[in-house]
Design a protein around this nucleic acid. Structure first.
Lengths: 125, 125
DNA sequence: GAGGAATATTCCGGAAATGGAATATATCGA
DNA sequence: TCGATATATTCCATTTCCGGAATATTCCTC
């Protein structure tokens, strides 16, 4: 009954917000921290929680650590991520997060700050 | 972010088993208790948990209380109930529960025990 | 190797959830 | 009214989780 762990990933506000943000592409901790407005240790802890259960993957680039949705996902996770997409259209928090994310990404592209490899590769932020 | 409460309903073993069983139709507490092999107070508590969050409905018939999936369900609950249907085909616990349920239903039909209104109406067990 | 930035971990207190055991409530029938 | 059955609630101990604060770690640059 490993899907229980997936539902545990989904039943907390910050974790849901993180997953919603990662649907649009990888992000590093500091940008998640900025977008969510949550304390950095909390963001790290929730990311660790998600990673321990296979709901996200991480990769280090210098001092940054990028988090992304895993390539191969459990069907239940996959289905609920799609749900999240629908929900995000109507939910104020999710929409605000995504708009905030887009603004951060634009700023990164403009100022060339942070996560250089990822920005160059077009994969991140 | 009310869907968080839905995911909380889904992130516990006994609750998932209950929802899986109710997909096939209503059941009273004592039959859930029998099928699950869980202590009756635990079954009652998990049912209360689900009811408080709108994931199940209950209706009294004499001394029995029937639990069923609500007619109108939150889209996320609905989608995950469908997932459960797929999962149940492969998961040993879920399959065993459903087989156990079928056996109990046959026995009820044969012995005419319990939930008389529901059995008569063909709605239960 | 010292300092700084990014991230993770630990420690703490409070809240919530879990399961077991005992008890309470409700309904029915004699 | 009493007893039996079905169900719910309470109490208790344990665990898990959550957020905040402080601290530790890692990596880079100078």
């Amino acid at each position: 009954m490993e899907y229980i762990e997936i539902y545990k990933c989904l039943c907390e506000r910050t974790r849901l917000r993180i997953l919603n943000l990662l649907r649009d592409g990888p992000l590093c901790v500091c940008h998640l921290h900025e977008i969510l407005g949550e304390a950095q240790p909390n963001v790290s802890k929730q990311l660790a929680y998600l990673r321990d259960r296979g709901a996200v993957e991480s990769e280090r680039h210098n001092t940054w650590i990028m988090y992304r949705l895993p390539g191969r996902r459990h069907p239940i996770l996959e289905k609920n991520l799609r749900c999240l997409q629908d929900v995000a259209r109507e939910d104020g928090v999710f929409r605000r997060d995504l708009a905030h994310r887009a603004a951060v990404v634009r700023r990164i592209a403009r100022t060339r700050e942070g996560c250089p490899e990822e920005v160059a590769g077009g994969k991140c932020c």
